[in-house]
């Protein structure tokens, strides 16, 4: 294969790739294709609260871990502790805060002190 042939194919590949990627990325994502980790921040925070509430009822740490994994957080214990801090500032219901603290502790994290 000559250098000219390779040059032509390469130019074609570049043009084709740009066109295809441009088309793929310009299309809006499907409206019903999101996963829990893509929820808006306030819903994601509330999801953590719900996970803590569920844990308060069933005491199933494995289930809580798998639910937190769906939120795609790197350090679940730290994340739950961070959510607890946020909600302390927002003066969330004490039952929510206690549930979050219990989950943080169960996950091996250090919960913030409750007011």
């Amino acid at each position: 294969m000559t250098r000219t042939a390779i040059f032509n194919i390469l130019i074609g590949v570049i043009i084709g790739s740009v066109l295809a990627i441009g088309y793929a990325w310009s299309r809006p994502p499907k409206a019903d294709d999101a996963t829990l980790d893509l929820l808006r921040a306030d819903y994601k925070t509330d999801t953590v609260v719900m996970i803590a509430q569920a844990y308060a009822v069933d005491s199933n740490l494995d289930l809580a871990r798998s639910r937190l994994a769906a939120l795609n957080v790197k350090n679940p214990a730290q994340h739950v502790a961070d959510v607890t801090r946020q909600l302390i500032i927002k003066v969330a219901p004490p039952t929510d805060l206690r549930a979050l603290v219990a989950l943080t502790t169960a996950l091996g994290g250090t919960p913030p002190a409750l007011p």
């Binding site: 032509n8 074609g12 570049i14 043009i15 790739s17 295809a20 990627i21 793929a24």
Partner: peptide
């Protein structure tokens, strides 16, 4: 002809990456 072949290959590769 070679340019066209490259574009086709590029579209396939780009679609795989983009989608």
């Amino acid at each position: 002809s070679l340019l066209l072949l490259g574009i086709v290959i590029g579209i396939i590769l780009g679609a795989v990456y983009g989608f």
